[in-house]
Design a protein around this nucleic acid. Structure first.
Length: 500
RNA sequence: GCCCUCAUCGUCUAUCGGUUAGGACAGGAGAUUCUCAAUCUUCAAAGCGGGGUUCGAUUCCCCGUGGGGGCGCCA
């Protein structure tokens, strides 16, 4: 397949970072835009379908996507399904769905919706076995690979000696080789010694991650490898493999990890709030999640936090990515989601609300059965009050049934103050004369009633709210009355009075 | 244990050696009024420690300490 001579010398174009202590110089260069490159940028996101799609994977995908879009390059999705034991079809589908939901469309890769295609396929490693064999044979031919214990090993170059490893409690063959120098776009110069031969094909004949990852990046002509810092230690192996194939390595950019919210360690699939699927289910807005994820390890260089994706694409660059790990904060994410929700245009909000009711199962049925314009009026009334779409079905339940509960504690509290029964009767009496045309008209009508009785709006508010909604919190009272309409309001007021 | 890496409010972060160390989330107080939110005002909150370099270090260097990652015939 891809001959060595076809591979452009990408690394020669990489400016990298001058020195390890590069905070100052990095700061100077971090706002600099990407240098012109002779070869178009090709990045890839390479997940394995062995578990739920989580937030760390999403951010890795996002940063690759952003870099591709920023540079006008190509974003490739490659499925690393070489672990036959753990691969699951449903996890594969979840990768496609989650990326699509987040809006991270891929230019090359398996076809899904509008994404996928490309002429460097197939894009599933399980379908590329022939290529790996070919590359392994190249290593064998050049004496860089050998068989031992039924597996195939990559041979490092250098003096060999036997050493007893105390930690692993076994004798290993060490190779004296010069350190591998990695010119990382985010971390600067990283040196690491790779001093043991390693397996590239298991004794069962399946190639291992290091091999397939490098072979595919060569074959797919990947120019920039953007991945989590947990791969930094692997990179020395990968660089040696590139050397073994006689191909210049790509530009590496190791992004910081996301740490779990509570307790030690990086975020994993088991942690609270880790699953993309869950945000989708809870009605989080993908644009809010994407915005939040961008800010975990990157910033636009000023105080802005909520910014349009197009603006992020314009500003995003590798040197601007932070070097330190970030702790996940679901409260900040919730806040971001709320601000997006508040600013959502009416039509979009109504559509999202309908989706959320769809996910709510039986609890959502009455709302979905309601007239479209009534549904619309209800959810738009609630929009400015919600923290998340997730709350909507419960928050608005009383709009869609006359059989809503009256909160006993609230009832007691409301009825304890003043003379609410009298107020209720007054409103009931005034109801035929009230103008239900607008919130303002209703407010003026009630205020006029209050003035006649020598009272204020507040004297009516809580008891009418209780009658109409069964509780003491909710949207604007006049808004609720307007949306419910005169007949329903009257029935509800009468219902409460009958419980005296 | 070895290797790599990182280090500013509780959290996410800004700062191209000189700032009253800024913003956001979370928290406190207040304003607003039609409840709850939202909004507005406001308070509290940080340079891990020790050495250097420098007229001057949060910033550059070194050593500690602490966090994170890796050390698989997982990816």
């Amino acid at each position: 397949m891809a001959a060595t001579s076809e591979i452009p010398a990408i690394s020669a174009l990489s400016p990298g970072r001058a020195s390890r202590g590069m905070s100052a110089s990095a700061a100077a260069s971090r706002r600099r835009s990407t240098l012109p490159s002779m070869s178009p940028v090709r990045v890839r996101f390479a997940p394995s379908p062995t578990g739920f799609f989580h937030i760390g994977s999403a951010r890795t995908a996002l940063f690759n996507w952003l870099y591709a879009r920023h540079t006008g390059g190509t974003f490739i999705l490659r499925i690393e399904d070489t672990d036959k034991e753990r691969n699951r079809e449903e996890y594969l589908q979840l990768i496609y769905q989650s990326l699509t939901w987040l809006g991270l469309n891929w230019d090359e890769g398996p076809r899904f919706g509008a994404s996928g295609g490309g002429d460097h396929g197939p894009y599933r490693q399980s379908e590329r076995a022939g290529l790996y064999t070919e590359y392994v044979n190249r290593l064998r031919d050049s004496g860089r690979a050998y068989e031992k214990d039924g597996a195939i090993w990559f041979r490092l170059e250098g003096e060999r000696r036997e050493v007893f490893d105390e930690h692993r409690k076994k004798t290993v063959t060490k190779v004296d080789a010069p350190p591998v120098v990695i010119d990382d776009r985010i971390r600067g110069r990283v040196e690491r010694v790779e001093d043991e031969d390693f397996v590239i094909v298991r004794s069962d004949g399946n190639p291992v991650f290091h091999l397939v990852n490098v072979v595919d990046d060569i074959a797919m002509q990947v120019t920039h490898v953007i991945r989590g810092e947990d791969h930094l230690s692997n990179t020395s192996k990968h660089v040696r493999l590139y050397e073994g194939f006689g191909v210049p390595p790509p530009v590496f950019a190791h992004i910081p990890l996301i740490l779990k919210q509570n307790g030690p360690g990086k975020m994993s699939k088991r942690d609270q709030g880790a699953l993309i699927e869950e945000y989708q289910r809870r009605g989080y807005l993908p644009e809010a999640l994407v915005n939040f994820l961008c800010l975990l390890g990157w910033n636009p260089g000023d105080d802005r936090e909520k910014l349009p994706l197009a603006e992020i694409v314009r500003l995003f660059d590798l040197p601007g990515v932070n070097q330190s790990n970030a702790r996940f904060d679901d409260r900040k994410l919730a806040h971001m989601n709320q601000t997006y929700l508040l600013e959502l245009p009416a039509d979009a909000f109504v559509a999202r609300a309908r989706e959320q009711y769809g996910r709510a199962g039986e609890a959502g049925a009455p709302a979905l059965a309601a007239a479209a314009d009534y549904f619309r009026a209800v959810v738009l009334l609630c929009q400015p009050k919600l923290k998340g779409l997730e709350e909507l079905p419960a928050y608005a339940a009383h709009f869609f049934t006359e059989d809503f509960p009256i909160d006993a504690k609230v009832r007691e509290k409301v009825l304890a103050k003043g003379d609410p029964w009298a107020r209720l009767d007054e409103v009931l009496a005034a109801l035929p004369g009230l103008d239900f045309g607008s919130d303002l008209a209703l407010e003026e009508g009630i205020k006029a009633l209050a003035t006649r009785c020598g009272l204020g709006f507040g004297d009516y508010q809580s008891v009418v709210r209780l009658a109409v909604s069964g509780t003491n919190v909710g949207p604007s009272l006049t808004g609720m009355m307007r949306v419910l309409g005169r007949e329903r309001v009257q029935a509800r007021l009468a219902r409460l009075r009958s419980t005296r």
